[in-house]
């Protein structure tokens, strides 16, 4: 699981669109995975299992967040002000982040799973828990939107 952490963080930061939120999401995912480790089946992919936990938590969080329009505890935000600007810049300001943030949640996760994490459509659909065709159409719509938003280069 330790070896998976960098990739889990990448997916989390991609989903959340912000490093501090991503790390909170990562933490919640690890905690839930540890609590439920009996449910993981030997021989299946641990990474897919954890990604599934993570995206489920994120969906729940996003809904809850919408309701209370309140971020979840951002313990490091205060500490990082004026400190490490690099990480903020990394996922705070870029065109790619702005474009990703405009995608609906289900398109964003499809794009991340296939185009960043390198999952096949079938594997990505299993993580999300939807039919392959659904995943495919979310991916296509998300990708078209990104091409539109980032434009120019094509």
């Amino acid at each position: 699981m330790l070896a998976l952490l960098p990739r889990l963080r990448r997916f989390a930061i991609g989903l959340a669109g912000h490093p501090a939120d991503g790390d909170d999401l990562c933490q919640m995912t690890i905690e839930r995975a540890l609590a439920r480790r009996d449910q993981w089946q030997e021989g299946t992919r641990l990474d897919s299992w954890m990604y599934r936990i993570m995206r489920n938590i994120w969906i729940d969080e996003s809904r809850a967040r919408k309701r209370r329009s309140e971020t979840f505890v951002d313990e490091e935000a205060g500490l990082s002000v004026g400190g490490d600007g690099g990480q903020e810049a990394l996922v705070g300001l870029g065109d790619v982040d702005r474009a990703m943030a405009q995608l609906p949640q289900e398109q964003r996760e499809a794009v991340l799973l296939v185009m960043v994490e390198g999952y096949s459509y079938k594997e990505a659909a299993e993580v999300v828990g939807c039919p392959v065709g659904t995943l495919n159409s979310r991916l296509v719509r998300g990708r078209d939107a990104l091409l539109e938003l980032l434009g120019g280069e094509a």
Binding site: R9, D23, E31, E76, V91, M115, V116, L146, E153
Partner: peptide
């Protein structure tokens, strides 16, 4: 265009893999 977008996304998120994982996460494990 698809491949260029993929390259752009991959290179955008790749640095996260190289950052040190925060202690609070590794400590959980």
């Amino acid at each position: 265009a698809h491949r260029t977008l993929k390259a752009r996304l991959a290179s955008h998120f790749a640095p996260i893999l190289e950052q040190p994982v925060p202690d609070r996460l590794t400590e959980l494990l």
